[in-house]
Nucleic acid binder design. Structure first.
Length: 506
RNA sequence: GGCCCGUUCGUCUAGGGGUUAGGACGUUAGAUUUUCAUUCUAGAAACAGGGGUUCGAUUCCCCUACGGGCUACCA
């Protein structure tokens, strides 16, 4: 059992965008699989057709692709244990549910949703289980002939697990250690719904068994239903093959309390989905980390360190490093509040550490969105190196780079005009002539020349440097003025000084 | 309400019976950058409370408080 091949799965239901916590679950599964030379499978849990959303499955696949966490087996990649969509495995589950009924570990229940709702409302602490199952309409409480008659008549019914009395179910969680439950406290969960589809509880056990899953990592919200799953593994006779469990801590709202949700993103102004998700029904577009300008490497990095660390002070990890260093036992037990400021820091750090060639395609995309189409890659690479330390999110590249390709749309006049005078105007007019006579602008030659010229004219360097910058850039930011001028070239520099002169004197 | 899980700076976290309780984000101050950002230096900032166990508990145990999750024919 210990030499069993490592096989893990991510099993989302296709109901909408993929949330931070979901991607982190994928990440931890993926890291564990790759570290142990195992398989990572994607299984689509689409057993609830009322919640099924068109396009959600493709979206999930795209997210995994963007993150670089591609599954070895999936509905589209296929695999030895296909199909990987539970809706396509529907027939399978009934057989196991019936088997459980036969063995006395499950039973048919005929109660309607309305009857149960009524009970839940009227009886405090009502649970379909130990205490009440005898007073409800099921194959445990009804005489056999009546059950047969109901079944023959095609009466809608579900199959429920029969929780045993007075047992303690315990297991070892790879993150939490020993966890235990009293069966008297757990209710008789529905295993097979009236429409013939399994619930999560049945499907997850059957599929994990059939797909030979060795380790099951999922969010902490699943912990309370773990005893149902444990029992099912046992009743179905598969106990020896049961995966090892790990329940991951939740990602919480940065303010207040509770699980992080889609709404929090809108409320607090940051994304919670990996990629933007468009809801065709409501017409609502929920922004994603990708669209906001996160590098996938940074996104993964920040997710990995939310609840995990390697025990050293290292915070920046490549995917390969994560695979090498990851250990599920080092995942924290407590939930973590999401901090968007730190998320941005990770991205800035990744931009700084990435070389310009890697950044190039991203930057070209950003600029293209602003109708700046670059043909000279070499020039762009030089520029990226010049300014990448100033960028936090990818769109910042437009802010920091746009003026190399477009004239300033406006000038920060408030920073120049109050101190602007004819003397400065004359200085620049003469400077244009000086520039006209040189071959090309070389920062290391032209900057000292500029300074010398300013001194010669009896001006303070700072007094002319700032207006010069604003002529070229439009505002008070950016790299060294002469690096900008050099990239712009002599003619364009002269052109911008000329236009600046007009604007400043107006 | 019941059950389960959790609790170290504002946040993410390291640590673990004897430590000046470490790092990071953010924040404050300063230096560098004749801009902005980067970078550098320094600072403020935490073991939820109460009982045990112990020579000694932030660390182990119990209780309380607080937080979170679950309590659907949703996952």
């Amino acid at each position: 059992m210990t030499d069993k091949k490592v096989r893990v799965r991510f099993a989302p239901s296709p109901t909408g965008g993929l949330h931070l916590g979901g991607v982190r679950t994928v990440l931890f599964n993926y890291l564990f699989a790759k570290k142990h030379k195992g398989d990572f499978v994607l299984r689509i849990e689409d057993t609830d057709q009322t919640r099924y959303v068109e396009g959600a499955e493709e979206y999930i696949l795209d997210c995994l692709k963007w993150c670089g966490l591609e599954p070895d087996e999936s509905p589209v990649a296929g695999g030895q244990y296909a199909p990987y969509r539970q809706s396509e495995r529907k027939a399978l589950y009934r057989e196991y549910a019936e088997r459980l009924v036969m063995q006395g570990h499950a039973y048919y229940a005929f109660d309607t949703a309305e009857e149960l709702d009524k009970n839940r409302k009227e009886i405090p602490n009502f649970q379909y289980g130990q205490a009440y199952r005898d007073s409800l309409r099921n194959s445990l409480s009804l005489p056999q002939h009546e059950v047969d008659a109901l079944l023959d008549a095609g009466t809608p019914h579900v199959i429920r697990i029969k929780m045993p009395a007075d047992e303690t179910i315990s297991f070892h969680d790879m993150i939490r250690g020993h966890v235990s439950f009293e069966t008297n406290q757990v209710d008789d969960k529905v295993l097979l719904k009236a429409d013939g589809m399994p619930t999560y509880h049945l499907a997850v056990v059957v599929d994990d068994y059939l797909m030979k899953i060795s380790h099951a990592f999922r969010g902490e919200e699943w912990l309370p239903s773990a005893p149902v799953h444990l029992l099912l593994w046992d009743y179905l006779g598969w106990k020896a093959d049961m995966p090892q469990w790990a329940h991951l801590p939740l990602i919480l709202k940065p303010d207040g309390h509770g699980k992080l949700s889609k709404r929090d993103g809108a409320r607090l102004g940051f994304p919670v989905y990996a990629m933007s998700w468009f809801d065709a029904k409501t017409g609502e577009l929920t922004p994603g980390f990708r669209e906001l300008g996160f590098l996938p490497e940074a996104f993964l990095n920040l997710l990995a360190t939310l609840g995990w660390n390697d025990g050293t002070d290292q915070e920046i990890f490549t995917l390969d490093e994560l695979i090498e260093k990851f250990s599920i036992e080092r995942v924290n037990k407590a939930g973590a509040k999401f901090d968007f400021e730190k998320a941005k820091w990770f991205n800035a750090e990744w931009i700084k550490r990435s070389d310009a060639t890697t950044l190039l395609p991203h930057v070209k995309t950003i600029l293209a969105e602003k109708n700046i189409n670059i043909t000279d890659d070499q020039r762009l690479i030089t520029l990226i190196d010049l300014i990448k330390d100033r960028c936090v999110l990818l769109p910042d590249f437009y802010q920091q780079l746009g003026y190399f390709f477009e004239e300033p749309k406006s000038y920060d006049l408030a920073s120049v005009k109050p101190k602007w005078n004819d003397q400065k105007g004359d200085f620049f007019k003469e400077y244009i002539e000086k520039l006209a006579n040189i071959e090309a602008i070389q920062p290391e030659l032209e900057e000292p020349a500029f300074k010398a010229f300013a001194e010669e004219k009896g001006m303070k360097i700072g007094d002319v440097m700032m207006p010069f910058r604003i002529m070229l850039v439009g505002s008070k930011f950016g790299p060294h003025v002469f690096d900008i001028a050099a990239s712009l070239g002599k003619q364009e520099t002269i052109n911008r000084i000329t236009k600046g002169l007009v604007a400043f004197s107006a």
